[in-house]
Design a protein around this nucleic acid. Structure first.
Lengths: 247, 247
DNA sequence: CGCCTATTTGATCTGATTCAAACAATGTGG
DNA sequence: CCACATTGTTTGAATCAGATCAAATAGGCG
């Protein structure tokens, strides 16, 4: 098994919400999957599709989104290694939004049948997946909170706190920096802002010496102040103890 | 079993996303629960609570919400008869938001133990609940779509379409009208608007002869135009065929 | 009646959008 | 290795949707 095909990020992620036994981890590792490399901005699943497999992100960045009638895009979530963004397709036949890569990525397809088989044999893994879906929903609620009630800079700050935490739980941060290859218009579409305003708000956060985002790399200059600016409280990520401590 | 204690709305709701056998319905009806009448604006579960039971709304209106540091409220969802708003507490220990009544209501508490027992015996019911949670998340995504990318009147129109559809699937509409006892400030807090602006936007929708909302009763004057105004596509509610047709 | 809560209206202000254009970085083909 | 296209970032100016502040009106209800 090569580096790219491995499921360490997935395991790490599941363990972040539910402790797993060696046997359960093994069962996950044994899940059959077919890998596929993708370019940037490639659609993986389309709004309205009916699929018989789930997508596991092995490497890269992806997002879920939907378009308005007038063509503007709303991004609902960003996805990183270890995420199964369309886990819902296991229970809801047709997709109600799309999934696409942001950067060149490696994804794996795991058939619904094998996941169903897995969770039938391992109730604790079923619980772990169930939790994962619920955390996904909790993240959506925070997203709403931000768009509905926070100013642009604090909204952006919150997104950065969340992404940093999520990347950290799968081991993809490096000290106080991490890869975050989002364009300003990605951020705008995620947070209900215009690109121009995202640009100006980023300058504010930079001037306040909270973060620095350049060339797809996020540097957290002052985590505590950033959290304060964002009103970020990681409780909604429901991380178990070893993962829960602030970065 | 009196009228108020019955679970017809819950069953109706579960059937709207997953067909159920007579045995499964019976198992749901047998679920032990303790009923409690509540006044308006009473907190049922508080942000940070750890509970050992789920809440089933038997009668009335409730909402899930959270407060900003500065005190403004963001509502994430409205709940009606048949909803189990905090189903997530079954898998996520501590609540990451609050749940409160809007109108005087009757709620029932169903212990986690008995739900766990139920879904262990009836995998299809587990699936139904799983689906229910996923539809809940899909609704959150639409909520984001609205707040992020729609104008105030169309956002409000979308909320009305959604509520009307949801009320209709549990049998709580009456022709083209339904109870919708939300104040303008409830709507504002749900959609990230100010009360004043909700008021003016409602006047717009009224003048356009799409809806009429007065004294907690919503009258849909022109369903098709309302859907168009809202860009409402009920696909995300994932209703099975007998429930899926447009109102 | 009088109190409380909800709706409505008016006036003013502002965060964010839009439009437009310059600028920087990166990649591509000749 | 340069010319050019492409994509992303930055800046400026005008405009607008929606917020805020303040006050009037309208319903319920004990």
């Amino acid at each position: 098994m090569t580096f790219l095909t491995d499921k360490t990020h997935l395991i790490r992620k599941l363990e972040s919400v539910t402790p797993l036994s060696a046997g359960e981890k093994h069962a996950v590792l044994e899940l059959p999957m077919t890998q596929r490399p993708l370019g940037a901005h490639e659609e993986i699943v389309r709004d309205g599709d009916v699929s018989n497999a789930c997508v596991l992100i092995l490497k890269g960045f992806a997002c879920r989104y939907k378009h308005t009638a007038k063509g503007s895009r709303q991004i609902f979530s960003f996805h990183i290694s270890g995420d199964i963004p369309d886990l819902q397709s296991l229970f809801l036949e047709t997709m109600d939004h799309s999934l696409a890569t942001i950067t060149p990525s490696h994804v794996a397809f795991i058939s619904h049948d094998s996941i169903r088989h897995l969770i039938r044999r391992h109730p604790r893994l079923a619980e772990a997946l169930w939790r994962d879906m619920l955390v996904d929903a909790a993240i959506l609620r925070q997203w709403i909170m931000g768009i509905g009630r926070r100013t642009a800079p604090s909204r952006i700050a919150h997104l950065f706190c969340e992404q940093f935490m999520r990347l950290r739980t799968v081991g993809l941060t490096n000290g106080n920096t991490c890869k975050l290859p989002l364009t300003q218009s990605d951020i705008a579409d995620a947070l209900g802002l215009s690109t121009v305003h995202v640009n100006r708000s980023l300058q504010v956060l930079r001037r306040e010496e909270l973060i620095d985002l350049r060339k797809g790399e996020l540097k957290v200059v002052n985590w505590d102040s950033l959290c304060k600016r964002a009103e970020f409280d990681p409780a909604y990520l429901h991380l178990v103890s070893p993962f829960a401590s602030a970065a």
